[in-house]
Design a protein around this nucleic acid. Structure first.
Length: 507
RNA sequence: UCACCUGUAGCUCAGUCGGUUAGAGCAACGGACUGUUAAUCCGUGGGCCGCUGGUUCAAGUCCAGCCAGGUGAGCCA
């Protein structure tokens, strides 16, 4: 058996394939079947003349997502997606679907697709996202393993909230209350003191009732932790890591990124250009419009975006009016009229989207202008900041109030901690949060008290500062947010096979 | 938890000022067409207008409550 991904080795040869029919088109005496086999997509032509009457009649019976087995000749054809097509000589049905396949080749709403997630995964776009996800996971392991990091698994059951801020999923552990982990970091620090450099790669749970395109209740996180690393080295590692993964994925997932219509020019600059590194103070100045980037301030850029949007909206409104005048003509042929009405629906949807975008801009402006020094960045602020750059940006030196207790304070300014957030461009927001960790026992005890955290839970963690305490740093990367950005998928729910989010436990 | 938006055929959506028998495209089914790319063209079937109550001579349309979903805020990766 041959897979579609291997076709270029079999040009002109007769091969056997197995797969599912995703679409069929017919003409008299000729049937076009689009086949998928998990490795790719291929148009198969069943011509009554060459394949024979029996195969042709079988082909005519086929319904969407029926499974088949076929033989045929591989022919180069530049018009096709993969560059090849199959001229079928033999065709056998493995399973003919009696019921209609729910997901058609037309548009569907999110709720319907999510209810049919188990079938939706077969669709081309979902297939491509999952393949890229796989290559990202592989590239992540590759990067760390090549450098000698040790992969470790942190426990999923935990006794207490690590940071005390987020809501955890409560469960039960032999009649005792327990929680599902929200981070493996503290355990990662312990392992780093044993192994030098480690990384975790596992599930993380947050019981936040957020319903946004950036949140999941269950997601996968990569958390490296390195002994003898300060925050500078940490930032260097983060940047090299992201560059390396993006580079590898671009090489391995060319076809998938093409299906996803990903602009790879931006990804190329991610690999080649240095990421902007700005302090929290500088980020605030940018938000306030005091500090221009590439000759333009945030306020000016937003005003420009607003004008461009308004122009587009006007254009669409004119188009809608023109078409409405056309269908007012009662002599118009019915089919022509329907066609125009469909086009109108599309235009109205576009208009709705653009108007929604436009309506957010005043919020962005307000949020940016009125941002209070010392606060954490909200979604609107992140959007404004990343809009200023085309590369991921690293924001470092944060006010201690908005960050976790374990972050190392800045020797030069006691109000700041050595944390770093990486914000992905193109509106994708925070993908990495990291920091140098506090190494001083007394300072750490003080911080735990300040954050009102239960001291007894941290006794083993404090041991790490009692015995051979060393400077160390680490970070956490949200896998699904990373996949969202690389694949240019607006909603995080499409980047994991079966998302668990507020209001969604099935399928 | 709060704010805004949505719920009409299997799917995506129209439905004007409350007024006759509820509309289209796609999908399904039947037919035409020998190279289609979400093919096209002709035809057929398909409805608890989210649920409950209210206003009215009359409700898909107006009002209230509930349910479900979407987007954002908070929180975060």
């Amino acid at each position: 058996m041959i897979y579609i991904s291997e076709l270029k080795e079999y040009e002109g040869k007769e091969i056997d394939l197995k797969g599912w029919v995703i679409n069929s088109r017919s003409s008299k005496g000729i049937e076009f079947l689009v086949l998928r086999d998990g490795t790719g997509f291929l148009q198969c032509v069943v011509d009554e003349q060459t394949a024979g009457q029996e195969a042709y009649e079988t082909a005519c019976k086929l319904t969407q997502e029926s499974s088949v087995e076929m033989s045929g000749k591989v022919v180069k054809d530049d018009r096709q997606i993969g560059g090849y097509e199959l001229q079928v000589t033999k065709l056998k049905i493995l399973h003919l679907n009696n019921d209609n396949y729910p997901i058609s080749n037309k548009s569907h709403g999110v709720e319907f697709l999510m209810n049919n997630r188990h079938l939706w995964l077969r669709s081309k776009r979902q297939w491509a996202i999952m393949r890229v996800r796989n290559n990202i996971i592989y590239a992540i392991h590759n990067f760390f393993q090549k450098q000698g990091f040790v992969q470790m698994d942190a426990p999923i059951f935990t006794g207490n909230a690590v940071e005390g801020t987020t809501t955890l999923f409560a469960t039960e552990f032999y009649d005792r209350p327990a929680y599902l982990t929200q981070s493996g970091q503290l355990y990662g620090e312990a392992m780093a003191m044993a192994m030098g450099r480690i990384y975790t790669f596992g599930p993380t749970f947050r019981a936040e009732k957020s319903k946004t395109r950036r949140h999941l209740s269950e997601f996968w996180m990569i958390e490296p932790e390195m002994a003898f690393f300060d925050n500078e080295m940490n930032m260097d590692l983060i940047e090299n890591f992201i560059k390396s993964v993006v580079d590898e994925v671009m090489q391995k997932s060319k076809y998938e990124l093409e299906i996803l219509e990903r602009n790879t020019e931006i990804l190329k600059t991610v690999v080649s250009d240095r990421f902007p590194r700005i302090t929290y103070d500088e980020a605030v100045d940018i938000l306030h419009g005091k500090k221009p980037v590439n000759g333009i301030t945030s306020i000016e850029l937003l005003e420009k975006d607003k004008m461009e949007l308004e122009e587009k909206i006007n254009q669409i409104k004119i188009e809608i009016e023109e078409r409405e005048n056309l269908i007012a003509d009662t002599n118009l042929k019915q089919s022509k009229r329907n066609f125009i009405i469909n086009k109108l629906d599309v235009l109205k949807n576009d208009l709705k989207d653009l108007e929604e975008k436009l309506s957010h801009i005043p919020e962005y402006l307000k949020s940016a202008k009125e941002f209070r020094y010392g606060d954490d960045f909200g979604g609107a602020d992140e959007t404004v900041l990343t809009r200023m750059f085309s590369l991921p940006i690293m924001v470092f030196n944060w006010p201690k109030e908005v960050k976790a207790f374990y972050m190392k304070r800045d020797e030069k300014n006691d109000n700041l901690v050595k944390g770093v957030d990486v914000l992905a461009p193109e509106g994708f927001g925070e993908i990495v949060g990291g920091s140098q960790r506090e190494t001083d026992l007394d300072v750490l005890i003080q911080r735990i008290k300040e954050h009102n955290l239960p001291m007894e839970v941290f006794s083993w963690y404090l041991d790490l500062r009692k015995f051979g305490s060393v400077p160390h740093s680490g970070f956490g990367l949200g896998l699904e947010r990373f996949v969202s950005w690389i694949t240019n998928t607006k909603h995080i729910r499409e980047t994991i096979p079966f998302p668990r989010m507020y209001g969604r436990l099935n399928p």
